Amino acid sequence: MRTNTSKLDGEMYNKEMAKLEKIIDLLNDALWQFCAWQKGYDVPDFLNRLINSPAETFHRYLSYEFIAQEKCNGFDVGEDEYNNPNYQICYEEITSEMVPILEAHNELCRLLPDIKEAYSNSLFRIEINAYGDRKVVKTADADLYIMKQCTEYI
């Protein structure tokens, strides 16, 4: 009588867990940027839009135009008032805000197939802490799901 045995591919498991952690970190970075610029936001809706339509979502909520307008309003500078003494300071702040946003967008687009797969398999969820802060965390079933995916039957 032959019995089926299984073997966990540890290297593959570690790689997949690291990928999930990277996805979670990336989504939390994008969420933090979004929350810093949007008031009265719907986090689950934002996350769903980000995963299903990243270009539109970044353009709508985190675009250069949106952030420039907000920063210029804060400095009481028109977007085309280049001779205003506060314009250079405002422009530097806009640029420093945009660097991490564009880096996150680039990484999100690169990992989008993996993010969609993790999302469709419910490997992460939004958690709300006692202060009302929201963050992406892996689900309790994520380890088991990945372990099953990395098991070889011999």
Rank of each mutant, 00 (worst) to 15 (best):
V77Q: 04
G78L: 06
P113A: 07
I94G: 05
D9F: 05
H105A: 11
L112W: 06
D114P: 01
M1R: 10
T151A: 03
N4K: 10
I126N: 00
N14F: 12
W32A: 15
S53V: 03
T95I: 12
T151K: 12
G78R: 06
G40M: 06
D143G: 06
P85S: 10
S6Q: 11
T5Y: 09
M17H: 07
A36R: 07
T57N: 00
Y87Q: 03
Q88H: 11
C150Q: 08
N106G: 15
C90L: 02
G74F: 04
K148N: 14
M147C: 14
E56I: 11
R60C: 04
K71I: 15
T95H: 12
D42F: 04
C90G: 01
N84I: 02
N14A: 15
L112K: 07
G40A: 04
K116H: 06
E107H: 07
E11S: 14
V77M: 01
C150A: 01
R110M: 07
P100L: 10
C90P: 00
M98R: 05
A36T: 05
Y119A: 04
I67T: 05
V136R: 01
I23M: 01
G74W: 07
K22T: 12
A104G: 07
N4C: 08
E127Q: 12
G40L: 01
K22Q: 05
E103C: 10
N84M: 07
D76F: 09
T3A: 10
Y13E: 08
Y61G: 04
S122P: 05
S96N: 10
T139G: 03
L50P: 00
T3M: 11
